[in-house]
Structures are given as structure tokens and as C-alpha cells.
Write a protein that binds this DNA or RNA. Structure first.
Lengths: 244, 244
DNA sequence: CGCGGCCTTGAGCCACATCAAGACTAGTGG
DNA sequence: CCACTAGTCTTGATGTGGCTCAAGGCCGCG
């Protein structure tokens, strides 16, 4: 089950540079401690942080691990809307309408920082540095969501999967020799990219055979990104990374 | 061609209640006139306001008519990312990265209000009322984009088209007896929903035959929304309107 | 009247979903 | 240590929704 530590001091937070307080000068961290009361919580894989429609009091930042935000249709079909990395803010949409727009689940063991939405609002109003980070975040989230719209709306399965892998490897924390963690099952990749498990599996197997894709215990590697893009997406790497 | 009027006074703006200055008390409108210099510009149908990748100086608000934001893949495939109504803000993503993320085109004759991005930033920093409207707008845009992700990722063509029509008719300015303007061609509907013209046309024709959909000179009507949802989406109206 | 856009309709095909077995892996308990 | 089980992944066989290609119809306009 989830575990909650006591109140947490932002001063000693190792990932502060990734979070929404990144630009706040260190000398203000003491002051905000009076209004801002974050808690660090740990969740195990597949545990649910909150459900779509729940009344939203808290927003979160990922400290380590990965979280998926997903939306379910009445008949049970599931779509993963976003996958969150260290430093990402989520659950903040509760500020409008008071409800969470998605269900949030830990992909594996994850550590998050939880705080009251209205406390963050207060900090945002007080400190322009926080405000500007938040503004940037929202615009980036919006742009990313809209890029994904293009992926889903205009590309076919192979192109989507290829582009996803390339982007993931660019974005995710790099391990040794290009091995990056991929904490998503085939089913989840399918739910993210709007395709079935079987289609995901077939494409990945094929690329393995062609030496374009390698996998070992939850880590993956793309030995020849250039060729993957050329073969599969029929575009250059830069085009995959730029827009859709 | 586009036509630009001179400087415009926010005090006399008929749609101020829809725009980002909606909550700003009238007595401040005079003050901001010193830093905030909006211009009203008119564009004809299919005219381009700006191109994806252009350096972004200005953001816009729709005053009347409709604007589409679209993204193009290198090979020419086009996806419509958003359709904007009166009051909608766009082009503001230029604040991050300095470039427009999409191409903006007028769907028919459209009147927009254009202003420098940094002027809006200044107003936002000065007036909390403007700041809070902007915050709400971004979160709503994000939520809407993510809802659309679910549409494209998890639903099939008929469901997408049905949900789109129902939502459009709920959202758009209502005309007489439920007739609503729909300024999109079949091609454009396809580009928005990730399907071909032919598929759009076939579905609409079929629904016309069944009496679920009517059309007259750019206006449409859904005589029996309840049945459309039940037949096509296999869900209730509320479910179509809520999330996915 | 003829021309160029849109829209519609049909016929055929293909990418991808669906259905159905196995294969592999990891955890569990005797 | 080895069955037993359950979950995930792979692979094949089959079906079909929607794309593609191709014609023709219906405007509005010069």
C-alpha cells in the first residue's frame, strides 16, 4: 500500500530543480513553508493515486518513477492520456471544476510529492517565479497533447510506435550505453497509442529481428535511430522529434 | 485580403465578456490602454493568420467567425488540432520557444483581436483577474485536448463523428430552432477527426436518411440527439458530453 | 453553358482488429 | 527443487472497418 512520510522540507528536496519551485530563490523556501505543506508519498506498481471524477483537493509532482493518467469510456475501453516523469505536475486540473479529469496510477514503484491545490495557488500568486514556471508547464503540456493528437489522427500504427520510441528514448533519463527504462507493458503502449497489444508486439518483434530495437529486463535501446525513422516513419529524426 | 482597423478600445468591445479581460473591472480598462494595444483584423475564408514555425510576436482572440489551428506532417497530411469560437485565445504558445506551434486559418470570414504577447503578459502580471482567467483557459484547453486524445485513440469513426456533432451543437452559438452553423467542409471534419472525406460523407448521408441529421446551407440540426447517441455511440448523451 | 469545387456513392483491397493457441516468465506453495 | 498457476508476450489465422481509387452528381460562378 501507499506510504506517507511526514511533512517535507522543500529546502532539502533533491529534485527541486525539476519541480514547480525550481526558479524560486532558495531564501524564499523558508517563507513558503508556512503556507505550503507538501507530503512525500510512495505508491507501488498499479496502485491508484486517485480516480477520474474524484473531488480534487491535491495536486502532485513526480519525484521518482512513472505515473500514468488514464481515461476510461463507459464500456471499459481505456486510453492512457499522459505518462509522467520526475518533475511533472499533475492533478492540478482540479482547480477548474473541482474534479480530477483522469485516473492516476503508478506504473511501478513511484514517489510523489502531494500538496493542496489552494496552497499552490497561494504560492503562485505570491511568487512570480512560480507563476511563470506554471505558465510554461501548461503551455508545454498543451503543446504535447496537441502533438499527440496529430500522431493519433494522422499517422498509422507503425509510425506512431516508432515516433513514440524515439521520443521516449530522447526524453527519458538515459542509462548506460543508451539503455533506457520503459516501464510500460505492451498493453499499456497500445492504450497510449490507440492500437492493440498484438499490433504493438508484432511491430516490436519485427524491429528486433531487423536489429532496430533491443530489450532487456524493462530497459530498451534503439541501436539505429536514423534507420528506424527512415524505415518506419519515412522521415528524418528531427522531424519525428519536432512536431508530430 | 486581411484588413486591419486602427487601435481598438477594450471599453467598447462587444465581446469583452468572452475574452481574457472578462473579469477585469471596467474602471481598470482605461489604465491598461497604456500598455495594451490590441488591433482588430478581419480575414476572409481560408486566409492564413500565421504559419506553424513562424516567429510569434502576437496572440489573438476570436471576435466573430471561426478559426482552425492545423498541423501538417512533412508529407502533407494535415490534422486540425482545434477549432476556435468567439472569445477563444490562440497563438499564445509563442511565449514558450517563440514560435507558433500551428498554422492558423480562417474558416470563413472572421474577425480577430490581435495583441503583442508580451503586452498580455504584462497585463496578466499586473491584474490577478486576468491571470486567473488565463489559468482557467489553459487548463480547459488542456482538458479538451486530452478528451480529444481519448476520442481519437479509443473510439471508432462513427462514434467520433457522432460525439463531435453532439458536442458542436451543444457548444456553438445556437440559431433558430436548433439550427447551428457548421463552417467545416467534409474534408475538414475528416482532418479534425482522423478519418477520410468518404467516411464522413457516408455516415452523414446515412444519418440523414435515418432522420438523425439535417443540413441546410451551412447550418445543421440534430432532431433526435438521444437516439443518435444511443444508435451510434451506444451511450447516453451525458456520457458523450462529459468525458470521452 | 461550361468549369471547378464539393459532395456522394460504389467496388475492391489492405491495415489492423479480432480470435485463438502456444511460449515464456515469475511468483507460490508443497 | 520442482510442479502449478497466472500474467505477459508472441505468433498465426481469419475477418472487417475504413481507406483507396474511380465516377458521377450537384451546386455556384464566370
Amino acid at each position: 500500500m501507499s506510504q506517507q512520510s511526514g511533512g517535507h522540507a522543500c529546502q532539502s528536496c533533491q529534485i527541486r530543480h525539476l519541480g514547480v519551485l525550481a526558479r524560486l530563490p532558495a531564501e524564499h523556501l523558508g517563507q513558503i513553508a508556512q503556507t505550503f505543506h507538501p507530503h512525500v508519498i510512495t505508491f507501488g506498481g498499479q496502485e491508484t493515486l486517485y480516480y477520474q471524477g474524484d473531488s480534487a483537493q491535491y495536486a502532485y509532482t513526480v519525484r521518482s518513477g512513472f505515473v500514468k493518467l488514464l481515461s476510461m469510456l463507459p464500456d471499459g475501453r481505456t486510453h492512457i492520456v499522459r505518462v509522467l516523469h520526475a518533475g511533472d505536475l499533475f492533478g492540478f486540473e482540479g482547480i477548474v471544476g473541482g474534479k480530477y479529469a483522469h485516473t492516476a496510477m503508478a506504473l511501478a514503484k513511484v514517489e510523489v510529492c502531494r500538496f493542496a491545490i489552494n496552497e499552490l495557488i497561494a504560492v503562485k500568486q505570491e511568487y512570480p517565479e512560480v507563476d511563470s514556471v506554471l505558465t510554461q508547464r501548461w503551455i508545454q503540456s498543451l503543446t504535447k497533447a496537441e502533438d499527440m493528437l496529430v500522431e493519433l489522427g494522422a499517422k498509422k500504427t507503425g509510425e506512431r510506435l516508432g515516433a513514440f520510441l524515439v521520443r521516449w528514448c530522447e526524453t527519458a533519463p538515459k542509462g548506460i550505453e543508451g539503455w533506457v527504462p520503459l516501464p510500460l507493458s505492451r498493453v499499456e503502449i497500445g492504450e497510449l497509442l490507440g492500437m492493440t497489444v498484438e499490433t504493438v508486439s508484432r511491430a516490436l518483434s519485427e524491429w528486433k529481428r531487423q536489429g532496430l530495437f533491443q530489450e532487456r529486463g524493462g530497459f530498451i535501446r534503439l541501436p539505429d535511430v536514423e534507420r528506424l525513422c527512415a524505415n518506419v516513419c519515412n522521415v528524418s529524426v528531427s522531424e519525428v522529434l519536432n512536431v508530430g
